[in-house]
Write a protein that binds this DNA or RNA. Structure first.
Length: 422
RNA sequence: GUGGGUGUAGCUCAGCUGGUUAGAGCGCCGGAUUGUGGAUCCGGAGGUCGCGGGUUCGAAACCCGUCAUCCACCCCA
């Protein structure tokens, strides 16, 4: 019989790893709550056009990375490659605009992108994301970046820097783009094949190409910051001074251009020095046009997403708290009667609120105690045929090796009184 | 989609320029201790040597293909 294996780039999280994930999720949840964000749970798949329209039809994500399939009636559906589109869709669909206060959402969940797996890159990966809808104010940008930074600082992830850039308004980019294009065309032959292609479709992306030759050329290219309108400049100034006020460290990166089309004004990215090639831990920005693009009322918005796998990669082992020390009771029931009585005692303990376990394979006391030791149980309740005959059991403290006789009829009560701290 | 590395026991790996019954450590089960754990000693179970073809008297080893996986490009969180 052939063994069925998991899908390429799709990972199982085994019990050894889930504690560190919980740590990360709890930190994100805790800080999101403090900043007034509320959880939203949106579907894992949507109509394909939602992503094509929001992310941008000519982006790599939409062009070649989506898991798209046909529903039985022929409509094209796709597994969400990110969370903003679905959140905004839900926001519009449920008329959340009608709710007066600014809407601030957060979400957790798997995202899907058909890419070649690599360190820190999977086909099913997980994001924590935040969307702040309704506020066209620099303080909303700062708030979101502060939240991002607070979560990462809380987890003590090493080697992080927050990079930030100003993409300006659409009109600003429209005046800048021709300048950049004409400059790039002068040096077209020196650019990599990819960037030569980008001159036509997405010239701004040439700015964050990593090929050294391209970088040398773009180093002296006209800068977007020089084409920005006064409004965009002063907005960005307010963002930066806001970051100073709340003491969030950042570094300006004029090359920072996001891979999704819907961003404007503030864009930011947190990169790690210790992550290999996939060094972006989280990223986001302002996307004032998106709600309208998706058919809603004009609504300013900012958000970000964090990659949970990458955070997990960075989280030092020492940060993962040991699982809380439960008082675990191992029940060693053995012998013809002991096994039966032990099984009922095991259930009684659980009903009484204890964490209790046993190993039903073990037929000797020795084997039972070895299991109790391996499972790091604090106590073992020994019930053999002798104990059954006497109507009692032996409670062994695995650390001190002290043993107590307890009556089978009142095991729970007696254990309670014997436990440390009672 | 394109490169490169790696696939031998549950895990980590050894196996010299091809040589016959494929090994170690850890883990697992049992015994020494016929009802008392962790240490020690002894024993045991567990392997299509990723898969398919080829070369050879002989292949885990060499060749070809294929699959998986990791890393990088690319892209991004």
């Amino acid at each position: 019989m052939s063994v069925i294996k998991g899908i390429k780039g799709v990972k199982d999280l085994l019990p050894e790893e889930t504690p560190r994930w919980r740590l990360i999720e709890e930190a994100a949840r805790r800080w999101a709550g403090r900043y007034g964000f509320h959880e939203i749970r949106i579907p894992i798949f949507e109509v394909t056009t939602l992503f094509a329209r929001s992310i941008g039809a000519s982006t790599d994500i939409v062009e070649k990375e989506m898991y798209t399939f046909q529903d039985r009636d022929g409509t094209s559906l796709t597994l969400r490659p990110e969370g903003t589109a679905g959140t905004v869709r839900a926001y519009i669909e449920h008329n959340r605009t009608a709710i007066p206060v600014p809407q601030k959402y957060f979400y957790f969940g798997p995202m899907f992108r058909h890419e070649r797996p690599q360190a820190g890159r999977l086909r099913q990966f997980h994001q924590f994301g935040v969307e702040s809808l309704g506020m066209a104010d620099a303080q909303a940008d700062v708030e979101v970046m502060a939240l991002l930074w607070r979560i990462l600082s809380d987890l003590d992830l090493p080697g992080l820097t927050l990079e930030i850039n100003n993409l300006g308004y659409t009109a600003d980019r429209d005046t800048y783009r021709p300048q950049l294009v004409s400059y790039l065309k002068q040096y077209e032959s020196g650019l990599c094949a990819n960037c030569r292609h980008r001159i036509e479709f997405n010239p701004l992306r040439v700015l964050d190409c990593k090929v050294p030759e391209c970088r040398a050329i773009t180093e002296r290219a006209p800068r977007l910051s020089d084409s920005l309108s006064e409004a965009a400049r002063s907005y960005f100034t307010r963002v930066l001074s806001g970051l100073d006020v709340v003491k969030i460290p950042y570094s300006l990166n004029h090359r920072l251009v996001r891979g999704l089309d819907y961003y404007n004004l503030t864009t930011f990215e947190v990169t790690a020095t210790n992550l290999g090639a996939q060094n972006a831990v989280g990223a986001g920005g302002r996307y004032d046009g998106l709600v309208e693009t998706l058919g809603g009322p004009s609504t300013p918005a900012v958000g970000f997403a964090l990659g949970l796998e990458r955070m997990s990669l960075l989280l030092p082992e020492s940060a993962v708290r040991k699982a809380p020390e439960y008082v675990t009771i191992y029940v060693a029931g053995f012998g013809g009667h002991g096994a039966v009585v032990g099984f009922t005692a095991l259930e009684e303990l659980r009903l009484g609120g204890f964490q209790a376990v046993s190993d039903f394979r073990s037929v000797t006391l020795k084997a039972h105690l070895r299991q109790a030791d391996r499972l790091k149980c604090r106590f073992t309740l020994i019930i053999g045929d002798e104990e059954v005959a006497k109507g009692s059991a032996v409670l062994r403290d695995m650390e001190t090796k002290a043993q107590y006789d307890v009556s089978l009829s009142t095991v729970n009560l007696q254990i309670h009184s014997l436990l440390p701290g009672s």
